[in-house]
Design a binder for these strands. Structure first.
Lengths: 195, 195
DNA sequence: GTCTATATAGTGATAGAC
DNA sequence: GTCTATCACTATATAGAC
């Protein structure tokens, strides 16, 4: 029973989010029109404005939710040995980002299309995530577990390296994601001098 | 003497390229109009079509020239010891990318906006660059200089890590670019197990 | 809540005068 | 080679009917 009009609030909201995520990731925020999104959702363009005040806010909410969920999902144990905490970060980051390629891609690529206030908000969240890794590295350096010179720079280097997995890894090839996690853990461990 | 009309072919061409580079990097290809570019160049929009058949070709040429210049600028010595070749790659990559932030940014971010044929052409050039690093790593593994398990994956990891410098480094801060090059060389050397 | 219709503005690209 | 003017479309967002 394909209704073409009427009330669908409980399904249109999530469908809008999903459609926007996919289309923004595939073509870029500026290249996607509200009409294209509406077509994928299965409504007319005007109906989308029951769910978002404008296109900019739609983008911001996608990015903000992604960052908040990322921060919430990463569980660090400050009392565990730093090498163990770092190993967990590496495996977590690769797995979490692999599971959400569209949200990850948008949150990297569309920063330019945020209004200044929205940009600042997202950058603050991103920095909070980077700081979690930096804290692990600093703790390890303080205890003599790691020999890396500059934990701040090392945190940038490690995150860039790990996020890069999304640009080339496809499941079904010669390596499983577990293989990739193991190889990156080897490289990261060496990188920070964790014997 | 500010001429507002007439023949400027020798200056408009370069100015178009530079204006497009800056605007695409700042706002994204899809978000920038030919009129905006023309305004920065100092001509009317119609005049741009004396220099490019269309907007898509303009983007493609910027990216292709960047990749060709990158490939041409990197000088590897296959007879040198792999650790020395790797050290050179690290320093070169950081310096070259730091000097061309706009072209680098575009060549990463605007792949989605290329036509399929143009995308393939740019990807081929990018792969050629990655292969240069992989060749160094493989040579080092063969000689026992490096212990990295998988040179292909390591080349992705190293390039992602090095390119990431452009997202955070600003000159005039606590570190010079030379400092950054030294710290990344330390990390890369450790990463691939080059004692 | 979704529809149709529309206001207002902007888009890439082209034609022809100079 | 650049200009002005324009074509044919598309954009975001809103108003009011249902």
């Amino acid at each position: 029973m394909a209704r073409t009009t009427g009330s669908h609030s409980d399904i249109t909201g999530p469908r809008l989010r999903q459609a926007a995520l996919e289309l923004f990731a595939a073509h870029g925020f500026a290249a996607v029109s509200m009409r294209q999104i509406a077509a994928r959702v299965g409504v007319q363009a005007g109906a989308l404005y029951n769910y978002t005040p404008d296109k900019q806010t739609l983008l911001f909410n996608l990015m903000q939710d992604h960052m908040l969920e990322l921060l919430d999902a990463f569980r660090d144990d400050p009392d565990a040995p730093p090498p163990q905490r770092l190993a967990h970060f590496v495996r977590f980051h690769i797995q979490y980002h692999f599971d959400r390629p569209d949200a990850v891609f948008i949150s990297y690529m569309e920063l330019r299309n945020l209004s200044p206030e929205n940009f600042t908000a997202i950058e603050t969240l991103r920095r909070a995530y980077e700081n979690k890794l930096e804290a692990i590295l600093s703790a390890g350096v303080a205890r003599g577990d790691f020999t890396v010179q500059d934990p701040k720079i090392a945190s940038f280097a490690v995150i860039a390296m790990l996020t890069g997995v999304n640009t080339w890894f496809k499941s079904g090839g010669r390596l499983t994601l577990g293989d990739v996690q193991a190889r990156y853990w080897d490289m990261v461990r060496n990188c920070v001098g964790a014997g």
